[in-house]
Amino acid sequence: HPVNIPRREKDFQGMLEYKKEDELKLVKNLILELKPRGVAVNLIPGLPAYILFMCLRHADYVNDDQKVRTLLTSTINSIKKILKKRGDDFETVSFWLANTCRFLHCLKQYSGDEAFMKHNTSRQNEHSLSNFDLAEYRQVISDLAIQIYQQLIKCMENILQPMIVSGMLEHETIQGVSGVKPTGLRKRTSSIADEGTYTLDSILRQLSAFHSTMCQHGTDPELIKQVVKQQFYIIGAVTLNNLLLRKDMCSWSKGMQIRYNVSQLEEWLRDKGLMTCGAKETLEPLIQAAQLLQVKKKTDEDAEAICSMCQALTTAQIVKVLNLYTPVNEFEERVSVAFIRTIQTRLRDRCESPQLLMDTKMIYPVTFPFNPSSLALETIQIPSSLNLGFLTRV
């Protein structure tokens, strides 16, 4: 019986050997039955991706193209399967977006392609795939990551959607007029906002919950920025659309409330170090609509100021706000038809869509900038909680 000499760390080559018949068990334990809130909570971020890649490395190392193919195919299909089953759970989708991207980065970082090796240690270069070029599989995995990203946005939108109008428009914090709805409106979902009324705070807490979940899962910072930008776009678009459809929202005080809410959202971005991710800019139409509610709307000079201020609003949107505008009190008159004509004349040669409402379903195209990892594969140890005892470190 061979003496079990403990191998020193440097003897491992960062691969995991497994028998072909154990492949189904591998994807079952590592993908299909892994609970993001359970075992996965205290894993190192991206561990499933590293484990899958180390298995792939061994199949490549022994020059078994069939084993490489079947592992990649069952990995991809298992991820798709779990997302079909639990695709409405933000944690699950975020977890597998982070791991799919990490797997994709590993395929690049260890592809042997110079372009992806700039930040590698010499040790990491030794771990490059030796026999197979998986460029075509990288494209498939990138397509999968795009699908998962779109699903994540849908997930997040379903959670945020019911909060936006209440939190950004209806709930008033400035004049101290409490807009608490009767408790009958209590939401059933287990999400953050379980009180009767969604407030701006509910939105901010939910944004923070999304953000910390993605960080905990090891999602690429560049990807988190794109998700946050998309979240802010949805918040801005839904808020503006409701403003444009509701007379009761077009008042001087509502303009003030919106500007306050926007400043809180910007504060949140600053707090998370996300001021440059483009999220703030997506709120520009809403910001300008709020300003439009507060500026003077009488003279030619006022008209000129409005036209130069409202660059992110279409003419239809500007005219709509002016038509819906409700004076502060009986001393203030409604916006005159003549004034609105002046605005329309000034803006007639603008080439823009006649659209009134923003497209709340628009998703910015996503990119996955290459993000190599400094993690040394040979040091990775597999927690027993993953039930992967049939894998052998090589």
């Binding site: 195919t73 197979f132 075509e136 599989y137 498939v140 397509d143 999968l144 699908q147």
Partner: peptide, 30 residues
């Protein structure tokens, strides 16, 4: 592997083709 020997490009099915392969496998083993 001598660095000079290029890696063999593995042709990959598309996501959709993979899904079809997966469905047919599942039908064979209910």
């Amino acid at each position: 592997r001598p660095p000079s020997r290029p890696r063999i490009l593995l042709k990959a099915p598309t996501l959709a083709e993979m899904e079809e392969m997966n469905i047919s496998e599942e039908e064979e083993s209910p």
